[in-house]
């Protein structure tokens, strides 16, 4: 996705807390690939793991490392993994579900394509996540937090 859209969109992967550290909720699928990582205790330690991860997965996307107090990860409630699309005005246009079940890169990509279509169409000025001239989008398909 990064290679396809990098000219139009800024991509950041943000390295946060380990989801399945060897000293926590370990996973067989990690063992299988020889990935054995303990939960880092400092930002430096986390950075080292991030570098290792980047190299083994041959990632080309810019990778940022969250500080050990998980400041950014918490602000986005991004554990264990999560996707966001932020529009040109700095507003959230896509908030993926919480990982692991909500992690849907293809859905993000569709939203991105539609955002590009929106801009190609002359880009309705978008405010508060709702395009001004289209009533139907005031109700996102996704559920609202529990009612009453």
């Amino acid at each position: 996705m990064f290679a396809r859209y990098r000219d139009r969109v800024d991509f950041y992967s943000i390295y946060i807390r380990e989801a399945h550290p060897s000293d926590g909720w370990s996973m067989e699928s990690n063992d299988k690939f020889g990935i054995k990582v303990a939960q880092p205790k400092s930002t430096d330690e986390r950075t080292k793991i991030a570098v290792h991860c980047c190299e083994s997965l041959k990632m080309s996307m810019p990778m940022l490392v969250d500080s050990i107090d998980d400041r950014v990860g918490r602000a986005y409630s991004a554990f264990p993994d999560r996707l966001y699309l932020i529009d040109r005005d700095g507003k959230v246009a896509y908030k993926g579900g919480r990982g692991p079940f909500g992690y849907r890169p293809r859905e993000l990509e569709q939203t991105l394509v539609m955002m590009m279509l929106d801009e190609a169409k002359g880009g309705n000025k978008v405010e508060n996540g709702v395009s001004r001239d289209d009533e139907s989008t005031t109700k996102p398909e996704s559920p609202v937090t529990s009612d009453n």
């Binding site: 969109v9 992967s13 943000i14 989801a19 990690n30 290792h52 966001y84």
Partner: peptide, 17 residues
């Protein structure tokens, strides 16, 4: 915020494990 007004941004949060 450096991207604001210039490009949309995709944020991908995750870890190795």
């Amino acid at each position: 915020s450096a991207s604001r007004g210039k490009k949309p941004v995709v944020l991908i949060f995750g870890s190795f494990t």
